[in-house]
Structures are given as structure tokens and as C-alpha cells.
Amino acid sequence: MSFTLQNALLGSLVVLASIVTLCNAQCFFIPKRHHPGDNLKECRDLDGFTYPMNSKWKNNKCEECSCNPAGISCCNIAAVPVGYNELKCNKLFNPKTCTYTVVEKKNPKKFCDVQQWVM
């Protein structure tokens, strides 16, 4: 198997593993991938954007990320309601503020009590 094909397969596996992690966790990690010509003082995300080493930023997916020598670490910054009456209420997400509200299904103007939030 050629070196280029091995790199392509390895890169594909890293991307797939990252996507699975995105779907199943509040935090995830993107290992640093080295490409010819990459600056070792920055990280490159899955969309191709680069960030300076040891920097932190918030993305448009309500995640706070940081660049370190091993790669990019990201965590969800939106507290998710989990302790509420799911039969009576709906949780609504506002991507502009990265917040949830929980309202009654029959009367969406009325808020529901939430006993627990998860980060």
C-alpha cells in the first residue's frame, strides 16, 4: 500500500472517529494532523481553519475550543436541560445565545420547571 493511500485512509479514520465523538459526547478531541507545509505553531480544524498554538475560541456550534500541541479540544458550552417533564414539555435551543428554554407543549408561552442541567 502506498504511503499516500495509507495517509488518506488514516485521515479518513480520524475524521470518522471525530464525527462519532461529536455525536456522542459533550467534549471531543481532534488529533493534530501533519500535512506538508503545516506550521507546527498552529492547529487546523476539520474545516481547514487554522488557530495559533495555545489559543482558545468559540465556534458557531456553541463549542469552546483550544489548540494545543496534541490537537484541538472542544466542549459544548450550552447547558442542556435533562430534569424536566418530557411528556408535558419541550426543550427549545437558541443557537444565537447557546441556551435552552423548556416550555409546555400545550402552551409554549409557559415555562416548565427544570430540576437538572448538564454541561
Rank of each mutant, 00 (worst) to 15 (best):
C65D: 02
L46H: 06
N39S: 10
P69D: 09
L87S: 15
T50N: 08
A70V: 09
V103M: 04
C112H: 02
A78I: 03
L9W: 13
P52D: 10
Q6A: 15
P31E: 02
P31N: 05
M119R: 13
V114R: 04
C27M: 08
T4V: 15
Q26W: 08
N24Y: 09
V82T: 12
V14S: 05
K91D: 05
L13K: 14
F28T: 06
K96L: 11
F93N: 03
T50Y: 03
E64S: 08
L40E: 12
L22A: 07
N90R: 12
F111K: 15
T4N: 14
V14I: 15
N85I: 03
S18A: 14
T50E: 07
M1I: 15
C65F: 05
L5G: 08
C62G: 00
P108N: 08
R33E: 11
W117G: 02
M119K: 10
N107Q: 10
M1A: 14
Y51S: 07
L46G: 06
F93S: 02
V80Q: 02
W57V: 01
N68R: 12
S12Q: 08
K41W: 13
L92S: 10
Y84C: 00
V103C: 02
N68A: 12
P108W: 08
S55C: 05
K106N: 13
K61R: 15
I77R: 02
D113P: 03
Y51K: 10
K41Q: 13
P52K: 12
T97F: 05
M53P: 03
T50Q: 06
N59H: 03
K110E: 12
C65E: 02
K32S: 09
V20W: 12
P81T: 01
P95N: 06
A78W: 01
L46D: 06
Y84N: 01
H35N: 15
I72E: 01
G48H: 07
K105Y: 05
N54E: 13
T4G: 10
S2G: 15
L22G: 04
D38N: 13
F29P: 00
G37Y: 11
Y100E: 00
N94D: 14
G71P: 00
C112D: 03
F111M: 10
N76W: 04
K58L: 09
S18K: 11
F111E: 11
K96C: 04
W117L: 06
K105S: 05
K32E: 07
S55V: 03
P31D: 01
E64N: 06
N107H: 09
N90G: 04
I30Q: 01
T97C: 01
T97W: 05
S12D: 07
K109Y: 07
P36D: 13
M53I: 10
K96H: 07
L92H: 10
P108A: 08
C62R: 01
P95D: 05
T97K: 09
V15I: 11
K41P: 01
N107V: 07
G11M: 09
C23S: 13
H34C: 09
S66R: 12
I77S: 00
Y100N: 01
T101I: 12
Y84S: 00
A79F: 09
F3C: 10
